[in-house]
């Protein structure tokens, strides 16, 4: 019983430059108290400036380290087979100029896009027609319909992404958060396969 340890790799771990990363940081361990304390302290990787932004630690490497120091230990792994180490660079502060530029780009872009859309579907004619259908008169510029419509546009977008009424309506994640999560998962999957030299074997051996 003493020789069995259960190990589960964490999904994503943030580390600092020059940090000595221990097994306890990249994985959850369940074992007898003494074993657990020892194993958690083993150093699995030291972050050097040569490392790229992301490092993949494969579970095989962790098992190898454990086995070397405790021959015959029975390691049971559960869950993901690797951990991604993300090296935290010095917090880059976003230059305000840069930020304002991006903001203006998006602002102008979406304004242009909505105008193109309105022209494309002849929204003016549709609005004139709605005005006529409801009131029975024709009006060149049915602003009473169009101004609320414009504010409704913004409201609809906010409503869809559920940023305004978060607490009041419900606590489920918004589609945007789910989308961000999925995108991050895809990126992680890519990194796991491509940054991990052990998972790819090429014919000529590199």
């Amino acid at each position: 019983m003493d020789r069995v340890i259960y190990l589960r790799m964490r999904q994503r771990v943030q580390v600092l430059q020059h940090q000595k990363v221990t097994i306890g940081e990249v994985a959850q361990i369940v074992a007898s108290d003494e074993n657990e304390r020892n194993i958690k302290g083993y150093i699995i990787h030291e972050v050097t400036p040569e490392d790229k932004h992301l490092i993949v630690i494969d579970v095989m490497r962790v098992i190898g380290t454990i086995q070397k120091k405790n021959p015959g230990m029975d390691v049971q792994t559960i869950g993901p087979a690797q951990t991604i180490l993300e090296i935290q660079m010095k917090q880059k502060t976003l230059a305000p100029v840069y930020f304002v530029l991006v903001w203006l780009l998006l602002f102008t872009g979406s304004a242009l896009a909505i105008m193109n859309f309105h022209e494309d579907v002849s929204m003016q004619l549709v609005h004139q027609k709605i005005y006529y259908m409801i009131t029975g008169h024709y009006k060149e510029q049915p602003l009473l319909l169009q101004v609320p419509y414009s504010f409704g546009l913004g409201l609809g977008m906010i409503l869809f992404f559920n940023h305004l009424f978060r607490k009041r309506l419900n606590e489920e994640p918004s589609p945007l958060e789910v989308e961000m999560f999925n995108y991050q998962q895809d990126l992680d999957q890519y990194v796991i396969v491509h940054e991990n030299k052990e998972t790819e074997k090429k014919i000529n051996g590199n």
Partner: peptide, 19 residues
């Protein structure tokens, strides 16, 4: 959310400007 707000305000302004 700041990005989202840029798009939202862009849409409102663009639409009002258009009409």
């Amino acid at each position: 959310i700041i990005i989202l707000m840029a798009i939202v305000f862009g849409k409102i302004t663009g639409s009002l400007f258009h009409w």
